[in-house]
Every structure is written in C-alpha cells, then in structure tokens.
C-alpha cells in the first residue's frame, strides 16, 4: 500500500528528512516515534502527496507521489497535528464540505457523517459551530474528516493527544476497525501506550533519520536492553525508545548540508 524508499526532504539549507525507507501493507499500522523536530510531520506530508520529496520515492497504491500527487492525495486521509477547523461552520456542514471535495455522493456522505458522529459521540453537537468545540471534540472532528472518504492510507499526526482516556480508547478502536477493513495506517505519536496499542511496526526517528524500524521484539533486540542486568523485567516500549535515542545522541539537531 505504502512504499517509501530513500525519502529525503530539504527546506532550503535544512535537511528535514533523509534516507527514510519504510513500507506498510494493507491492514498494517506503522507508528513513528521521535521527539519534536525529528522529521515525522515532514515524512507524513511527503507520504500524503502534499510535499514533493527532494529525493527518493513515495508510492501509494502503486502511484508515485512525484508523478501524480493529486491521485495520491485522493487515496490518503491526512490528519495534521493541529485540527485546522473552520470556526464558523457547523460540524455537519464542515464534514459535508470535505465529503464533497472527495467526491462522495451526497446521500452516502450524509449517512457516513451521521454514522461517524455517532461513533465519536458528537451527534448532539452536529449543528453547533466548530468554534464552540473543546480541544478534544475538535480532534475527533479532524479524525472523522481525515477518514470520511474511507482512504486506503490513513496518516495521523498525534491523533489522540487532546483526547481523554475514554475517547482515546474509542479512537483506537475506530482506527483498528479501519485496519481490519484494509486501510494502512501511519501514526505519529508521543504516547507509548498508543504506539503499543496500534503498532505492527514501530519506527524511531531522530534528526530526520529513522534510527530503527521493526516490531517490538526486533526493537528490543536493537536496544540491547535485554542484556542489561539492572533490568529485571521485560523492558517497556518507553525504555526501548529512550535507549535507542540515547545510542544516537551524536546526531546533529539541525541538519545543514
């Protein structure tokens, strides 16, 4: 579904992303971990066909993002970190607008909007202006918007960072359900719980590079934590993440070439 090979992105003198190679199959989920400025958002934007790569290749559903970015964007649902909602629009009108942009038939989009508002417990707020919504409600709307057209690939940047535990669990169930229906997922997050819950593979990024990519067992092996005597229990993802990032402290924060 998603093939990324040697992906690089340069903003002027700053090399935001370099040599990223990942692939995500249908129904799989890749979680990207990394501190702020590690290049996760840039990676998502390149995968979504929003930004063109400076080097390497991104293919979604066999379509090269450099050749036909609009076709890639039509197959992708991107949920940015900031929801970016129109304040003076009701949630129903807002979702209907994006449904129309994605060419969903009016009847289909009406029923789909009602269904998703119910999943996220927003039915009663359907006619309220988005400007009156709480942070968590906005994030739910952004997730609905990104997945309304049933995309083949869902790219979400911290999809549950503003949600309460109950709503976050509901969002994970929803994302798992999309996975079961065949969508591929790439999630950027700082929540280890979220990563453990959703991930098939986990990528750890720092300074625009992928330090390690693999499942939990592979990452545990890469971290070397199993060998340490002071760790009596199986190391958590948090331990593994910190160990791998610590092993690569020498990577420059600002990547100038």
């Amino acid at each position: 579904m998603l093939e990324v090979e040697g992906l690089a992105k340069r903003y002027g003198d700053v090399l935001a992303l370099q040599d990223l190679t990942v692939s995500v199959e249908e129904g799989q989920c890749l979680v990207l971990l990394g501190r702020n400025g590690a290049g996760k958002t840039t990676a998502l934007r390149c995968m979504a066909g929003v930004l063109l790569p400076s080097g390497g290749m991104v293919k979604v559903d066999g379509i090269d993002a450099a050749d036909d970015p609009a076709a890639v964007r039509a197959r992708v649902g991107l949920m940015p970190e900031v929801p970016g909602l129109y304040e003076r629009m009701s949630v129903k009108a807002y979702l209907d607008y994006f449904g129309a942009i994605y060419d969903i038939e009016p009847n289909t989009r009406r029923s789909r909007i009602d269904e998703l508002l119910e999943v996220f417990e927003l039915t009663d707020a359907g006619d309220r202006w988005l400007g009156t919504f709480s942070k968590g409600m906005r994030q739910k709307v952004a997730l609905i918007r990104a997945t309304l057209h049933r995309p083949r690939l869902v790219l979400a940047d911290e999809p549950t960072s503003a949600l309460d535990p109950d709503s976050a669990r509901r969002a994970w169930i929803y994302l798992k359900d999309l996975q079961r229906k065949g969508s591929a997922l790439v999630i950027c997050t700082h929540s280890m719980e979220e990563a453990e819950h959703l991930a098939g593979d986990i990528g750890i990024m720092s300074a625009g590079r992928a330090l390690a990519i693999g499942n939990l067992v592979e990452l545990r092996r890469r971290s070397g934590l199993k060998m340490r005597q002071e760790v009596r229990e199986m190391p958590t993802l948090q331990d593994i993440y910190l160990a791998i990032v610590d092993n690569h402290r020498d990577l420059a924060e600002v990547r100038t070439a």
Partner: peptide
C-alpha cells in the same frame, strides 16, 4: 489558523 494546510492535504 492552519485551515489552509487541511485544504492543501485534499485532492484539490
């Protein structure tokens, strides 16, 4: 307000 970013992520 970052609403433009959302619009730019669509097939428009």
């Amino acid at each position: 307000r970052t609403t433009l970013e959302v619009l730019l992520s669509t097939p428009l």
